[in-house]
Write a protein that binds this DNA or RNA. Structure first.
Lengths: 218, 218
DNA sequence: AATGATCTTCAGGTTGGCTTTAGGTGGCCT
DNA sequence: AGGCCACCTAAAGCCAACCTGAAGATCATT
């Protein structure tokens, strides 16, 4: 139990260092619920989980049409068990005990495979967003952002050029349990504009009425 | 050498059984050439290859913008070597000796992941409709559209060259429960023409009296 | 406990897209 | 030719979505 929490902390810390937001569930059922309610870059699943084991969670997700990359952590090391994990819909597995370095590398690979290329820092025109340092700059000018502002900007930057809906922003930058006024997104968009656009006489953060927001390079 | 050919045969046989076609190259340079000339679901790369090693082939492919899933086969098993393979652009690796069952399972997982389609933009002549960005352009000229206008254009573009009835447009671009004046479609067609045709001296958005509308490439 | 920073809520003001209206145009049939 | 009907389009009202400044709430730090 305390072992698993230490593991969760390790993973969480490492991924945070890579610029990702991490949610942790301590049993299978909670995990499944969180996974169905949110969109994640990658899911890490321990086979041995209270209330619902990893295989079952994995199967449920795939059944529901969710193809988020899944990394399965297993204590067994028999060959067929590994294959079983993969055939159950997992995208990779790691047998305990495993190295932290390998876990992170494999997760990076999974995430990379799961979608577009994701360089460590994201560049949108002359705006550079560095998730590792939680900093951003326009040209040579450093821009100070609060954590929340950064989370919103990051979500937009990761899909620069595309429209990101208010709901998606809420899901990615706020805790999944957040159920307050969606107007808060508008507040943060406003704040971001005041920091990344107005001082530079730019308008890269556009409103698409009725659809969401779009961060553009031009 | 005969070892490697037995391995290649194993993989080939197994994937054939899964319904995939397999090409085999026996050295790195041939492999790279085949990979650039064809489209594959997945690429299996041995690190130790004559004429050009696996890392190099992998790097070349990624450099060329080819993101076909790559499985790297390596004899080393040091922790950092594994991470190196992945960070080099491979999507998974397997250390020799490995089980045939595991290899097949991992390849299945890779193929399943790799098959994911990303949002496509639709091209009708020199008109490009990008659903992800909710934008469109004719040639190099950006055209600003409202969400509703975009929805109508999108519905027409998806079936370019065909006649789309007013009823179909209503069903696709408006809420299912919409029961207002069907004349609204005409209003939007008019607005679209003013944006995508008139400024360019074109008439690609045609009325088919009594039947509907058609978006043409010419 | 106090301070400052950040997060969230609130409310008034503004905008811009959606829809309706109504008059105009042009094809098609008798 | 005349009339009917489908379609076109400019204009205007309405309303939801959005913006933003400010105040209240929460959190971290000293």
């Amino acid at each position: 139990m305390e072992d698993e929490e230490r593991l969760a902390d390790l993973v969480k810390g490492g991924l945070a260092g890579e610029g990702f937001a991490v949610d942790v569930a301590h049993d299978g059922r909670d995990g499944l619920w969180m996974a169905t309610e949110n969109t994640y870059d990658v899911i890490v699943l321990d086979v041995m989980l209270p209330r619902m084991n990893g295989y079952a969670v994995c199967a449920k997700l795939r059944e529901a049409g969710d193809w988020t990359p899944i990394m399965m952590l297993t204590a067994k090391d028999g060959i067929y068990d590994e294959a079983e994990a993969l055939d159950n819909g997992a995208d990779d597995y790691l047998a305990k005990p495993f190295s932290y370095v390998v876990l992170l590398a494999r997760l990076r690979a999974l995430v990379r495979r799961g979608g577009r290329e994701r360089p460590v820092s994201i560049t949108v025109g002359d705006l550079v967003v560095d998730p590792a340092a939680l900093k951003c700059r326009r040209g040579e000018v450093e821009i100070g952002l609060t954590p929340k502002e950064f989370a919103v900007l990051h979500a937009l930057a990761r899909r620069s050029g595309e429209v990101v809906s208010k709901g998606e922003l809420l899901a990615q930058a706020w805790d999944f349990s957040y159920d307050g006024d969606p107007n808060i997104v508008e507040v943060y968009i406003s704040a971001l504009r005041r920091k990344i656009d107005t001082p530079f006489g730019r308008t890269t953060l556009m409103t698409v009425r009725g659809a969401g927001y779009r961060l553009e390079a031009a």
